[in-house]
Design a binder for these strands. Sequence first.
RNA 1: GCACCGGUAGCUCAGUGGAUUAGAGCAUCUGUCUUCGGAACAGAGGGUCGGGGGUUCGAAUCCCUCCCGGUGUACCA
Length: 555
Amino acid sequence: MNHLKQLIYNSVKSIFNIEVEVELTRPDEKFGDFSTNVAMKLSKELGKNPKEIAETLVGILSENTELVSEVSIAGPGFINLRLTDNAIFSLTNSDIDKIYQGQTIIAEYSDPNPFKPLHAGHLYTTLVGDVIARLLEKGGANTVRLNYGGDVGRHVAISMWSIIKFLGGESPEKLSEIPASERPLWLGQRYVEGNKAFEENDNYKSEIIGLNKKVYEIHKKNDHESNFAKIYWTCREWSYQAFKELYEQLEVHPFDRFIPESEVVNLGVKTLEDQLISGVYKKSDGAVIFKGEDHGLHDRVFINSEGLPTYEAKEVGLLLTKWKDYHFDKSVIITANEIDQYMKVVLKSVEQYEPELAKRTLHITHGMVKLEGGVKMSSRKGNVITAKDIIDSANQASIESRAETNKETVLAAIKYALVKNRVGGDVIYNPVESIALEGNSGPYLQYAHARARSILAKSTIDDLVVPGDLQKDERSLLRIISEFNEIINKSIIDLSPHLICNYLYELAQVFNRFYESNRVIGDDRETIRLKLVELYADRLKSGLELLGITAPDRM
RNA sequence: GCACCGGUAGCUCAGUGGAUUAGAGCAUCUGUCUUCGGAACAGAGGGUCGGGGGUUCGAAUCCCUCCCGGUGUACCA
C-alpha cells in the first residue's frame, strides 16, 4: 500500500507541485482494489473540476504497469486503481506498523473488588482489556498490564459487617467451616446481605461506617494479629484466589501487577492535602472536594466529612503511582461507562498539578453485559449476572447443540461474542448464537481454520508457489488476504478489536466462496491454490490469536 | 434539569461525510450439490438509517432541535 501511496503522492507533486496527504480506501471489489479522493481534495486548492484533475492523474498513474493494472475515474472524481497480481501479493509480505515502538504503555483493566462478586461486567472488561493490551503490544509497545482493586472502602466494611454477623462475632477460626468451593458465593452473599442492612437500618449503617475506619486502621498499623484483621486478610485472600481462578479459566494474558487500593491510598491523601493548600481542592461542608463545575464538569468529594478518602482520592493515588513507577508514554484505562464522568473530574483535578500525566491518560469505556436467548441464569439475587453465569450458559448451549463441551470452543464463543461489537455500547450476550458453528461466531472461525489446515495436511506438495496470473476467484481471495495488515493497523490505532472480527468473518466467507467452486488438491493449479490456502489459514490464526482465541488445527 | 453513552431489517450488529441497489449474521422462504471436513454455496423477501429542520454538488455519517432507552449527577464504586 505504501508503494501505491507514494506513487500517487509523487504523481500529484510532479504535475501540480502540491504535497498532498494521500488517503486510500478499499472500495467494492468491482471498482478496484483501492480508491482515492485526492482529486476532490485538490479541486479546491487548484480551483479546478475534480474530474479534470482525476483525468490528468489517471494518465500518469497508468504508466506504472509494475504496480497498477487498471485505473479509472468514478462518480464525482474518485480514482479507482486495480493492482497487478504481483503488487497485491507483495502486500501480504508487509509488516504491522510498530506505531508504539519504544513506548511504555500501561493497560489497566479488569479491576475487580475483593469482597464483592465477580459479575458479567468483570468478565467483559477483562476480555476487552486483554485484547486491547494485545493490540498495544502488537503495535510495539512495552505493555504493562495493571489490575486495580478496592480492598478498602465502604463496600469492604459492608461485607465485613455481614461476615462478622454470620460468624457470630469476630471469630476467624469459624471461617474454616466454609468449604473452599463455596467461598466466592458465600462472600457474594455477605456483600448482598450487608448492603441491605446498610440501606435499611440506620443503626447498622453507623456500625458499618465504624467498620470502614477500622479497615483503614488495619492497613495503617499493619495489623495481622487481631481477630478482625485475621478475618479481613483471610477473606481478601479468598477473593484474590477467585480472581486468579477466573483469569486462568479464561486463559487471558497474566497481569504484570496488581495494585490494591490500600497501596495507593496514602499517596492519594497526601497529594490531596498538598493540593488543598495550593487551592486545587477545596473544603466544603467538612469534605474535601474538587470544583468540577468550574471546568464544565460536576463537583465531587475526594475526602468525606468523616475524614475518609473516597474512591476519587484513591484514584488520584493510583494515577500518581503509575506515573511515578513507570513514567508511561500512554496509560489506557478500560472500564464500564458508568464511571466515565467521574473519571473526567478526577483527571481534570490531576491535570491542575500533573498536566502531562492527564494528557497521556486515555479512558476507554464500554457498556453493560446482558443475557439473552432462553438460557436460564442461576441468579441468586435476582438481577445480577455473574461471570460464572456467562460461562455456564455457554457450556450449556454447547451441550444442548452438540452434546458436548469443548473448552477451546466455549472460550472462543464467549470471547468472540463479547469483542465483536464496537466497544462503547451495551452487549447482549446470546449463548446459543455465540456457540454456533455457523454465522459470525468464534467457533465458526475456529472451524474454518481447522478445515483449511486439513486441506494443507492432505497435500503432498511442499514447494508452494507464489501466486501470479490469477484466476478470478483466486484473485478475490488474495485481495481480501492482502487487507489483513491494513485492518490490524487500523485496529491498533483505534484500539478497536471488533474490526478484526468483522474482517476475519468476511475473509472466511470469501474463502468459502472460492473453495466451493475451485478444487485445490489434485488440480493443475494446486501449488498456487495451496499457497492461497496457507496465506488464508495463517491470517485466520494470527487474527484469532490477537483476540486471545486459539486456532487449533483439528477440532 | 444538566452531562455522557446508545437509537440502522423481526432479532443481534457493521458502516460515522462520498459513488449506482445502506451491508452482514440469525430467523423465514427458494434453489445447487453422489461433499478436497456441506458446520457449504447461490438467491428471495424484509429498512421513511428515532422524528423534524439546516449545511453541502453529495448526509446513516456534520450542525440545530425534539422524542425514546441506559448510566451518572457531593460525601458508593
